[in-house]
Design a protein around this nucleic acid. Structure first.
Length: 453
DNA sequence: AGCACA
């Protein structure tokens, strides 16, 4: 009712004095120091707020004492010289508020450690590996600590520097973790990100709640009994197979060619694939896929389990952890690949007959799947394709976005395989997605990451 | 040139 009257009340003669002054017509990106220079002759400045308004050319300055603000206003009211910043006339009035309330309350002070609140989930819903994967897109994640507070499930994520932390925050704050990285029942999962005051987290153990990626030899949480390959317990308390950086994939209903290149494309969506070996077992096809670390393998396993490489239920993947940790495979054959050696393909390495391979014979090339004669339909859905909605159970989009946006994915997401769909030849795949350079274990950054938009 | 957390 009275809103119109209240709005009209702001005539210059009716304004009540305030310790807070409103300054407008400031020069572009006026720095706080410039405001202070202008105002401090009149008193002690206790707070400021810069870059206010649509043009970001307004500001507020709060004096310690009301009389100081009055003295400044009355000085310029009767001065022949107007208040100026960089030669530009600045207009000064009492603010209609009595104090500056600014939100740069610690959480906006940049630092290299992010405080991430994951809304709408319980602690068990988002694994530390998923968090690691999501934030690794921006740079090497040194450490992660998760905990539950009144605010909900939270994580501290430590980057090398505040620059990378800022990039991650800018890209992910207010966004959600992609659905396909979450359990089915999780419907929304907003990330609220601010800066922590911490600079270096003190991680005592590798555990389901904390990780130190700079120190892989850090002892495992003592509660997880017995050393290196700790049998992890599922949510229902059942023993799961020991985790490994190598996945064993069995491929069901294999109507179409599944080549090393196709697998490389598929599994690269989650990180650097170091080695792949395809072999036959019990009349079915299996493959071993080696990642640099178990965390990446775990995410890939959880994300791809039960999904099909090709639309229509073809080439369904079943994933488990291999007992292997480092595959010994021929660098370049039709059934195996070592991406950690350079240009193996071109050099057509002579077959050293004595080279032992791990386990049994995926080097025996059965030529079941001669060429990449993948289905002709363009609807084969690589589920890691962010524009695809069919492969995963839920669209991989962020709130407010319903389709593939024109902007590229955020940094680090450059190598998302988007189109194994077009039945690429091996060479097309290779040139499109590139081989991993020699020995370049994923620094946690460069590898293809799941799509974020 | 005219008031900031959504």
């Amino acid at each position: 009712m009275s809103s119109a009257g209240a709005g009209q009340q702001q005539f210059r003669y009716t304004q009540t004095p305030s310790k807070v002054l409103h300054l407008r017509n400031l020069p572009w990106e006026c720095a706080e120091e410039e405001l202070v220079e202008l105002c401090k002759p009149f008193g002690k400045i206790v707070n400021t707020k810069c870059n206010v308004g649509a043009n970001r050319n307004q500001a507020f300055v709060e004096f310690a004492d009301l009389n100081q603000a009055i003295s400044m206003v009355s000085y310029y009211a009767s001065s022949s010289e107007p208040a100026q910043v960089r030669g530009k006339t600045v207009y000064i009035q009492y603010s209609n508020r009595q104090e500056i309330v600014n939100n740069k309350s610690s959480g906006d002070v940049v630092g290299n450690v992010l405080l991430v609140t994951i809304e709408g989930v319980e602690a068990g819903d988002v694994s530390i590996d998923v968090i690691h994967l999501v934030f690794s897109a921006f740079g090497f994640v040194h450490k992660i600590a998760t905990f539950e507070k009144a605010a909900g499930f939270q994580a501290l994520i430590q980057f090398s520097d505040s620059g990378t932390a800022s990039e991650a925050r800018n890209a992910l704050d207010g966004r959600s973790i992609p659905r396909y990285l979450l359990p089915e029942h999780v419907t929304s999962c907003l990330l609220r990100i601010s800066f922590s005051a911490h600079t270096d987290l003190n991680i005592k153990f590798q555990s389901h709640r904390s990780r130190d990626y700079t120190n892989p030899y850090l002892p495992v949480n003592p509660s997880a009994i017995d050393g290196t390959l700790q049998p992890t317990l599922g949510p229902d308390g059942k023993k799961k197979e020991p985790e490994s950086n190598v996945l064993l994939a069995s491929i069901e209903n294999m109507q179409y060619a599944v080549t090393v290149d196709v697998l490389h494309t598929v599994f690269s969506a989650f990180g650097t694939v170091q080695k792949i070996a395809i072999f036959e077992k019990n009349g079915g096809m299996q493959a071993l896929i080696q990642y640099p670390d178990v965390a990446t393998a775990a995410v890939a396993k959880d994300s791809l389990e039960g999904h099909c490489i090709y639309d229509g239920g073809y080439c369904k993947l079943h994933l488990s952890y291999s007992r292997h940790t480092d595959l010994n495979v021929k660098a370049h054959s039709d059934k195996s690949r070592d991406y950690t050696v350079q240009d193996a393909g071109i050099l057509a390495v002579p077959q050293a007959p004595g080279v032992p391979t791990v386990g049994t014979g995926w080097q025996g090339s059965s030529q079941m799947f001669a060429g990449p004669q993948a289905p002709a339909t363009s609807s084969q859905i690589p589920g890691w394709d962010p524009s695809s909605h069919s492969y995963v159970s839920a669209p991989v989009t962020y709130p407010g976005q319903t389709s593939t946006p024109p902007v590229p994915p955020y940094p680090g997401a450059g190598a998302i395989p988007t189109a194994a769909a077009a039945s690429p030849t091996a060479s097309q795949l290779i040139s499109q997605y590139g081989m991993q350079p020699t020995g370049q274990h994923s620094s946690g950054t460069g590898a293809a990451q799941p799509p974020y938009y």
